[in-house]
Design a protein around this nucleic acid. Sequence first.
DNA 1: GGTTGATCATAA
DNA 2: TTATGATCAACC
Length: 222
Amino acid sequence: MMNSQPNSIAELMQRANDMAGVSLGDIANEHQLNVPDNLKRDKGWIGQLIEMELGATAGSKPQQDFLHLGVELKTIPIDQSGRPIETTYVTVAPLTNIQGLTWENSVVFHKLQQVLWIPVQGDRSIPVANRKIGTPVLWSPNPEQLTALQQDWEEIMEMIALGQVEKVTARHGEALQLRPKAANSHSLTESIAENGLIKLSNPRGFYLKINFTHQILTNAFG
DNA sequence: GGTTGATCATAA
DNA sequence: TTATGATCAACC
């Protein structure tokens, strides 16, 4: 059962606030869904469940989840102290046809304009069904965060443009990092070669580092 | 214990 | 294959 699209940010936030303190098992029951014992084979299960509850538009378009509201939805697993357990996937990294692409025109920039963070207990010792949803955070990057993101993005994209995508490791970047994003390490997609022509590389995605998302949550909760 | 590179499910 | 939703698990 997919809930209807929220018509305003206020409506979206009301739904999000109503989920706070509720367990994943309770939400799943509302939608008559079974809860997996673990997430090994259901890595996106929590995200999909929350999308359903909040009425996000299903689909795999490279756009915000609530395009009409200008809001991207992200669930984020946190430990007992409220620190994110995992990095946050943002989007696939473009590896070709990037001449003239600017930060302001990038998918990363657009998706991070406004994000609704839904913290969820992520400690693996807690059964998935018992994990509780936390207080939502509607976030937009402040000037400092925006600058940090832009610097990382531009540095990484320059490497890609120069045919150096394989030389970019997850250690690059303070806020944003580039990592594999594929079915496996053998997946291939077109990328720019050092001679400017096309070569094949493992697909990459942009991720927000934990320290960065931790700061977002910390700022929101004082 | 935190991070990096690898991986899983699914839709179009 | 590429996009979505992410977490797993080996490694330092």
